[in-house]
Amino acid sequence: MTNDTARRISATSLWTIIILIFALVPIVTTSAYKINVASHILVWGLFAVSFNMLWGITGMLSFGQALYYGLGAYSVGLMVDYLGSGWFLPAIALGLVMVIIVSFLLGLLVIRVGGVYFTMLTLAFAQLAWQITFKWYDFTGGDDGIQGIIPPGILENRIVYYYFVLVIVFVSIWILKRMAYSPFGLILRCVQQNPARVRFLGRRVRRNQLRVYMVSSFFAALAGSLMAGVDSSIHTDMLFWTTSGEAILMSVLGGLNQFFGPFIGAAIFILIEDNIGARTEYWPLIIGSIMLVMVILFPKGIVGEVLRLKAWFGKNGGGRQP
């Protein structure tokens, strides 16, 4: 029991520190770039964590969460573009309502199939949505995307908007974490390990899968709609399969069995991408090689390996005590 409490305290303090660090960014630096990078990390962190609710926890590898990420972004982008920037916040809300409906309907279709078919079906829907956004030039701006998405009022200030993102992201992650460690989260883990037994226990597998699919999609869309204000522009790339692929990458990089893993993975991925990208045009070779080594040698991801190392040191240190 004490052990459990201690763990809870240390996890809480870890979160306090992370939040504190992100909260300090605009105070330490006035650089718009650093604030922009920090915002990208926050948004991608939320997206990756929400994705990992599906994959790491429930074992449903979706290759199409970009659909919801893009849907969130485009509902904000389109409404601001057509109706004015006053609609920024209502657009986020409306977008989320739409995503709840869409993810419910699509969810009914996609959870019927398992394994690789689920992956393919989610990919297919996301690519279809991308194609439509791309082709429907008159309405969505097609490949040109939408520019000039400025949040209204006080949010127009970059720093205020940054804190707005920060609060929403961490509240969302806190909610997701509560869910992941609730009885609901426990059932999800059981669904991953042995769906048949979940049925024996009288729980409905499909219903729980649908629920987590909707939860994951909801927060992916929230991340997307926040991104619209970060860059002031959105683009069809947000719906493309590479966006879904990056969420997978971030989860593996950070550690897909750790709740924080994807968040740390998102941070590391974005920093690597920026630092290597700034120095060489051969970034795909370098990032590809790093990821290849990670996948082969450190399947637990960075957070997972750090925890394992720590456990190993802890054991050895304890053994040597006189």
Partner: peptide, 10 residues
């Protein structure tokens, strides 16, 4: 599955 996608993406 995810690791395969990642590795082949690399």
């Amino acid at each position: 599955g995810g690791f395969q996608i990642l590795m082949t993406y690399c």
